[in-house]
Simulated assay, not measured.
Amino acid sequence: MSNDVSVIGLYILDVLGRPVERIPERGNVEFIDEIRLTVAGTAGGTVVDLAKLGLKALAVGAVGEDEKADFVIDRLERHGVDASGMQRLSGVPTSATILNVRPNGERPALHVRGASDHFDVAREDWDRVLAPPIVHLGGTGLLRRMDGEPSRVLLEEAKRRGRTTTFDLIAANEETIALVEPLLPFIDYFMPSIEEARIMSGCDTVEDCAKFYLDRGVATCVLTLGGEGAYYAGRDGTAFRRPAYRVEVVDTTGCGDAFDAGFIAALHHGMDPETAVGFAQAAAGLVATGLGSDAGIRSFEHTLDCMSTWPRPA
């Protein structure tokens, strides 16, 4: 059975707890309402949401040979993801994060980089990894072996094969642009947060940020603006800003990954740009209503209904 999308990059086990008001002193205990384990990361969170939205998705990343890896692979398969592209690497732990979610939604993190630093896509795997019509690379910045030239070569090959390429990153700083800029001519949809876009470009306004990346080869920028919505700008001159939906936010973990998944699903279904951004925002809004990167999203139809009925600021 052929896949609709290949999701390459950062796969993490998240351990989340909420609400965390303080870390107890010495060996004391604080009681909280909820603890969850989820598959997360700029690829992992996206691929799970894509499966929940009804796409046939291939997961391409790496885990260790530990109990965390067992959980990640099991959860991917339970969601209906094709996990045959996941590598199990010996001698390194599965990448994992402990997230202490505060009552206001902030989420200070403790992270083990682990297997994702040792992941790469071998040329002999290109035929399988690049077979789907949409190829998403997520996690640049925390893919030590994959970052830079290996990512450029992979995206260039994806474009040579006629694939639609989408891209997101993580943990951007002023140096990250050196990793990202060579990739830009091979990216159809560039989907960072506005904070990441500003840090890498040195630009201030949303419009200037988008122009920076368009001038360097990206076909379309889709910048997430948090509670202010999203901004879309294409080389064809299409540009618009769309306000966010009003939802009761529980946890923003994975909202960017859900936006990516929603937008990719919209591409798969042939939606026009404004509808695609709205659908992506609805997917992100659903994830914000629960704990963890896989919260909220039930199905394509449910997300479409939320997009049609949820209120937006006037």
Score class of each variant (00 low, 15 high):
Arg161Trp: 07
Leu130Phe: 05
Gly138Asp: 06
Ala122Gln: 11
Glu124Cys: 07
Val121Trp: 00
Ile134Ser: 15
Pro150Met: 03
Leu155Thr: 08
Gly141Met: 03
Val153Gly: 02
Glu124Pro: 02
Thr140Glu: 11
Pro132Asp: 13
Arg152Val: 13
Ala158His: 01
Arg145Lys: 05
Val121Cys: 02
Glu157Lys: 05
Leu137Ile: 06
Leu142Glu: 05
Asp147Glu: 09
Phe119Ser: 00
Arg128Ile: 15
Glu157Leu: 02
Pro133Lys: 12
Asp125Lys: 15
Ala158Asn: 01
Val129Pro: 04
Arg160Leu: 06
Ser151His: 14
Val153Asn: 13
Ile134Ala: 06
Gly141Cys: 09
Asp125Phe: 11
Pro133Gly: 07
Ala131Trp: 09
Asp120Ser: 10
Trp126Lys: 12
Val121Ser: 02
Ser116Leu: 13
Leu142Met: 07
Val153Asp: 09
Val121Pro: 00
Thr140Ser: 14
Glu124Leu: 10
Lys159Pro: 01
His118Tyr: 09
Ser116Gly: 13
Trp126Asp: 15
Glu156Val: 14
Ala158Phe: 01
Gly138Ala: 08
Asp147Gln: 03
Leu142Ile: 10
Ser151Gln: 10
Leu142Pro: 05
Gly141Ala: 06
Pro132Tyr: 12
Gly114Met: 07
Ala158Glu: 01
Lys159Leu: 05
Arg128His: 07
Arg123Tyr: 14
Asp120Asn: 15
Ser151Gly: 05
Ala122Trp: 03
Arg123Trp: 11
Asp127Gly: 15
Gly139Met: 04
Leu130Ser: 06
Gly114Val: 02
Gly138Glu: 04
Ala131Gln: 06
Arg123Cys: 08
Val121Arg: 00
Ala158Leu: 03
Asp117Asn: 10
Ile134Gln: 05
His118Val: 09
Ala122Lys: 11
Val121Leu: 00
Leu143Gln: 04
Lys159Glu: 07
Gly139Pro: 06
Ala158Gln: 03
Arg113His: 12
Asp117Gly: 13
Met146Asn: 02
Glu156Ala: 14
Asp125Gln: 10
Val153Ala: 13
Leu130Cys: 14
Pro132Leu: 13
Ser116Val: 14
Arg152Pro: 14
Glu156Trp: 05
Val135Thr: 08
Phe119Asp: 00
Ala158Asp: 02
